[in-house]
Write a protein that binds this DNA or RNA. Structure first.
Length: 549
RNA sequence: GCCACCGUAGCUCAGCCGGUUAGAGCGGCAGUUUCGUAAACUGCAGGUCCGGGGUUCGAAUCCCUGCGGUGGCUCCA
C-alpha cells in the first residue's frame, strides 16, 4: 500500500512471486491483477491516529528517496531551544509543559505569550472564522474564486485598488532604499541543475506545470529568478551591498487543503522579495539593520503600529549566537520589546539567522509578515560570485528580505486590526490613503444634487464620490458608514448658502464645519508620501454595479 | 492530505425526522416620497435548493461521490 505506486509491470511480477511463495508454503491461493478489485473495504480496528500512517514500505525500498529522507532525517534531529530576549539583553530560557509556556513572566506581553505558545506548543484554540474573511467580502474587496484552485483569489475594484496602492508603495520604498527592480519568470525547469538540489528538500509543495517539452514548477518566491540573474552578473566588492528587488505576482505554494485560510495563507500570493549580496557577516549584520528600518517604515506607513502590532520570532544557530550575541541583543534593543528567540543546535537550513515579524490576530493565530535572513549557502549553490579587493572570486552572503511580507497579509493584518478596533468600540477603518472612497458627498435631497456635483472637481486628487440615489439622508449616511468612508460631507441648504462643508469624521465620530480647502489639506496631510490612485468605480453611486451584495 | 461541520434568491438566513405551486428580510427594478446625520412607503421581478449518482410512488430533505467553505490535526522553505 502506498500513495506513490510503481508501474503495473513490477506489480504483476510481485503478485506472481507472492503467489508462488505462498503456494510453496502450502496455502490455497487465488490472485488477480489489480484493476479487478477497484472497490473493496478494509476495516481496521486501531488508534485513530493510525490513519496518519498510510505508507507501508520495505526498508530497502526507501533507498530510492535519498534526497528527501536525508532532509527529513536531518530535520528530525533538529533541537530547538526557546528563549525570550529582553531589550536589556536579559535572556530567559523557556520550557513547555502541557501546552503551557513557562520561564518568563509574560504580564503585559499577552500577544508575545500567544505567539510563543503558537510557535512552541502549536496550540490552536480558535473556533471562529477569521474576522478579515467576512470583511474582505462585505467591503467588496476580495473574494474566493471557486472556479480556480483554493487560495487563488479574485479582487473586486476596491480590493484591487488597495492591493495596487500597497504594491506601488512598497516598491517605491524598496527602490528608495537602493534596490534595483527586476522581473523574472514564474516557472522553472525541474531538471535545472542549480534548482534541483534546492528543490529536492521540499518536493511536495510545488504547483507543477507541463510545458510543451518539460515539466516545470511555479516559483514559491523570487529566490530562483534573482539568483539566476545574479550568477551571470559581474560584481565588484565596491558594489556591495547589492540589492535586487522583485514583486512576485504571484508566488505559488501548493499548501495542503486545510491550511489555506482567507488572506492569511494562500496558494498564490504577492510577495515583495529583495535579496542583497554582501561580502561577509559583518556587512550582513550592518545591512540587515538598514533593511530593518526600511521594513519598519513600510509597515508603519501602511497603517500598522510598530512595534505594538507585531512579535519578533528570531531564529539563530547556536554558532551564530555564540559569535554574534551582541548583534542579537542590539536587535532586541532596537525593536524595543522582548522577542522570542529560537536557537538551533546545528545549521539545518540555508540560513544562520532569520527573523520574522508576526502579526497575532483575534483568534490568537500568528502570521509572519516582514522577514529577513542571512543565507550562507545559496551563493555557492547557484555560482554567484564577486571579485574582492585582492582580485579573487568569492561567494557573497545573501540576505533574503520581504520588507512587508505578502501584500495579501498586509491587507489581512489591516482588516484584522480594524476588526479588533470594532470589538473594542472604536470605528473600524482603513488608513485614509487606502480607503476606496475618501470623501462621500451626500446631498440631502435632489435640490442639492447639482451643487454637490460641482464639488467633485474641487476635490481633485482625492477619491471623492457622490451618493445620487434618492434614499433618505439617514440611509445614505448609513451606507457610507458601512463602507468605512472616512469623511462624509452632507450638503443641504445651509451648506449651499454658507459655502462650507459639514463633515462627518469617522475616526473621531464628530461633525465639523470646514471649508473645501481645509478638507483637501487635511486629507493631503494624511496621505502624504503615499501613492494615490483615482476612484476604482464610477463617482456616482447610481452608476455602480454590485459585485457581491 | 486526515477528521468534523457547513453549502437553499445577488446577500443574510428559515424550511430538512421524505409528501401541494420552496419562504422571509435586505438588496435590485418600477412608482410614491425630497427628507439635516447608521435602515421612508407600495408593488413587481428574482431559485439547476453546490455538481453528479443512488434509494423511493415521491428527494431541498435520506445515502454515496465530487467541488467549495469553516474549525481542528499536520504544515507554514
Amino acid at each position: 500500500m502506498s500513495s506513490s505506486l510503481a508501474a503495473p509491470g513490477p506489480a504483476l511480477e510481485l503478485i506472481a512471486s507472492l503467489e508462488k511463495e505462498l503456494v510453496a508454503r502450502g496455502f490455497e491461493v487465488h490472485s488477480s491483477p489489480f484493476g479487478y478489485y477497484k472497490s473493496f473495504k478494509v476495516a481496521v480496528k486501531g488508534h485513530p491516529l493510525s490513519e496518519l500512517s498510510r505508507e507501508i514500505v520495505a526498508e530497502s525500498a526507501a533507498a530510492g528517496k535519498e534526497d528527501v529522507s536525508e532532509a527529513v532525517k536531518a530535520e528530525a534531529k533538529l533541537v530547538s531551544h526557546w528563549h525570550i530576549l529582553e531589550p536589556t539583553g536579559h535572556m530567559h530560557h523557556l520550557s513547555i509543559k502541557d501546552g503551557k509556556v513557562s520561564g518568563y513572566p509574560f504580564e503585559g506581553h499577552d500577544r508575545l505569550q500567544k505567539f510563543a505558545t503558537y510557535e512552541m506548543a502549536k496550540s490552536r484554540e480558535a473556533k471562529e472564522e477569521p474576522a478579515h474573511v467576512r470583511l474582505m467580502q462585505e467591503l467588496e474587496l476580495v473574494d474566493y474564486e471557486p472556479g480556480s484552485d483554493p487560495g487563488n483569489l479574485r479582487y473586486y475594484p476596491k480590493g484591487k485598488l488597495i492591493k495596487g496602492l500597497l504594491e506601488e508603495f512598497i516598491g517605491e520604498r524598496v527602490r528608495e532604499y537602493g534596490a534595483m527592480e527586476v522581473e523574472s519568470p514564474v516557472m522553472y525547469d525541474f531538471e535545472h541543475p542549480a534548482l534541483k538540489s534546492y528543490l529536492a528538500r521540499f518536493p511536495a509543495r510545488q504547483y507543477i506545470v507541463q510545458t510543451p517539452n518539460k515539466r516545470a514548477f511555479l516559483r514559491f518566491s523570487a529566490c530562483f529568478g534573482q539568483f539566476l540573474i545574479m550568477k551571470d552578473m559581474v560584481i565588484s566588492y565596491k558594489q556591495l551591498p547589492l540589492p535586487l528587488y522583485e514583486l512576485t505576482r504571484y508566488s505559488f505554494r501548493a499548501e495542503q487543503r486545510g491550511e489555506v485560510a482567507g488572506l492569511r495563507r494562500l496558494r498564490a500570493f504577492t510577495m515583495p522579495d529583495c535579496h542583497a549580496l554582501v561580502s561577509d557577516i559583518e556587512m550582513a549584520k550592518e545591512e540587515l539593520m538598514v533593511r530593518f528600518d526600511v521594513a519598519w517604515g513600510i509597515l508603519e506607513d501602511c497603517g500598522l503600529s510598530m512595534p505594538d502590532d507585531f512579535e519578533v520570532g528570531m531564529r539563530v544557530t547556536q554558532d551564530f549566537w555564540n559569535a554574534h550575541k551582541d548583534f542579537v541583543v542590539a536587535y532586541a534593543k532596537r525593536w524595543g520589546k522582548p522577542i522570542l528567540v529560537e536557537m538551533w543546535s546545528e545549521q539545518f537550513f540555508y540560513f544562520v539567522q532569520k527573523y520574522e515579524w508576526n502579526f497575532v490576530d483575534g483568534n490568537d493565530k500568528a502570521a509572519a509578515l516582514t522577514t529577513d535572513q542571512i543565507d550562507t549557502e545559496n551563493a555557492e549553490r547557484f555560482g554567484i560570485t564577486f571579485t574582492d579587493e585582492d582580485g579573487k572570486k568569492r561567494h557573497p552572503l545573501i540576505l533574503h528580505l520581504s520588507p512587508s511580507g505578502a501584500v495579501e497579509r498586509v491587507l489581512y493584518a489591516l482588516l484584522e486590526k480594524a476588526a479588533a478596533a470594532a470589538k473594542a468600540g472604536t470605528p473600524p477603518m482603513l488608513p485614509v490613503w487606502l480607503s476606496p472612497t475618501q470623501v462621500r458627498i451626500v446631498p440631502i435631497s435632489e435640490d442639492q444634487l447639482e451643487y454637490a456635483k460641482s464639488l467633485l472637481p474641487r476635490l481633485d486628487g482625492i477619491r471623492a464620490d457622490l451618493d445620487d440615489s434618492n434614499d433618505t439622508l439617514g440611509k445614505k449616511i448609513r451606507n457610507a458608514e458601512k463602507e468605512w468612508v472616512p469623511y462624509i460631507v452632507v450638503i443641504g441648504k445651509k451648506e449651499i448658502e454658507g459655502g462650507t462643508l459639514n463633515v462627518r469624521v469617522r475616526q473621531t465620530k464628530e461633525q465639523t464645519e470646514m471649508a473645501v480647502d481645509a478638507l483637501r489639506h487635511r486629507i493631503a496631510n494624511e496621505t502624504r508620501g503615499r501613492p494615490s490612485r483615482p476612484l476604482a468605480e464610477p463617482a456616482f453611486l447610481s452608476e455602480r454595479p454590485i459585485f457581491r451584495g
